[in-house]
Simulated assay, not measured.
Amino acid sequence: MSGEELGKYMKTPHVFTFNDKPGYNIYNSEDGEFFTKASVSLYSPSMVNPKHAPQGKSSLMLQTTVPYHWMNNWGGGDKEVYRQLKEKAMAAMIGSASRLIPGLKECIEYKDAATPLTYERFTHNTDGASSAWSWNPKKKFYKNTMSVNIETPVKNLYIGSCWAMQIGGVPGALAAAYQCVKKIK
């Protein structure tokens, strides 16, 4: 799908959907149909910068929150079961996104999935948190999950990374670095 075609359906790079289906429960790691019930958020990096996709193409990331230990911790170490579960999750999420972008499934040339296990392996974040601290609403580290907290108990030591806010990630790291620069100027 070209960036122009994607732009017909997405007027902004981020589209957050909140249409959880009956039976949705983020804490139920045994629900084999979890992904058919969960809301899917869409993000198109190529709408921000066209170089994030080959010329005439677009990029689209689908994301949802998921129980960390879903389906016996994503297959209990069995690589084939893990692959099958990732395929099942991707198919359900693409199906959900296709309600917003008709014909999406037929336009996909490449797809991949990152699970909590992927994040844990590459970032060493506890329980596969995708962005620094856990997004689990029962495990808040800061009173306001969207605020940037660069202060530490040590004089002139600031947090200039994704760890300065609950949801972290690249946006959190940039916001923290910006706050640090303002503080030390």
Rank of each mutant, 00 (worst) to 15 (best):
G103P: 04
K140E: 14
P171Q: 01
S134K: 10
D78N: 06
P116C: 01
K139H: 10
G77S: 04
I159D: 12
D78I: 04
R83D: 03
N125V: 12
V170N: 05
G160M: 04
M93T: 08
Y158H: 12
M93C: 08
E80M: 07
K140I: 14
E87Y: 12
N73M: 11
K79R: 15
V81N: 00
K139D: 04
C162D: 13
G172I: 07
L104D: 08
H124G: 15
G103V: 01
I94S: 02
Y110W: 05
P102Q: 01
P171C: 00
K86Y: 01
T152R: 07
G95F: 02
Y82F: 04
E120C: 08
N149F: 03
G160L: 03
E106H: 14
N156S: 07
N73C: 10
W135I: 12
A97Q: 00
Y82D: 01
T126Y: 12
K139E: 11
N144R: 13
G77F: 01
E106M: 15
Q166P: 10
E87Q: 11
F141N: 15
G75V: 01
G76V: 00
L85K: 00
G76D: 01
G160E: 09
V148Q: 01
A132V: 11
C107T: 09
G77C: 04
W133S: 07
A113Y: 07
T118R: 02
P137F: 14
A173K: 01
L85F: 01
T145H: 14
I108W: 05
A114R: 02
D78L: 06
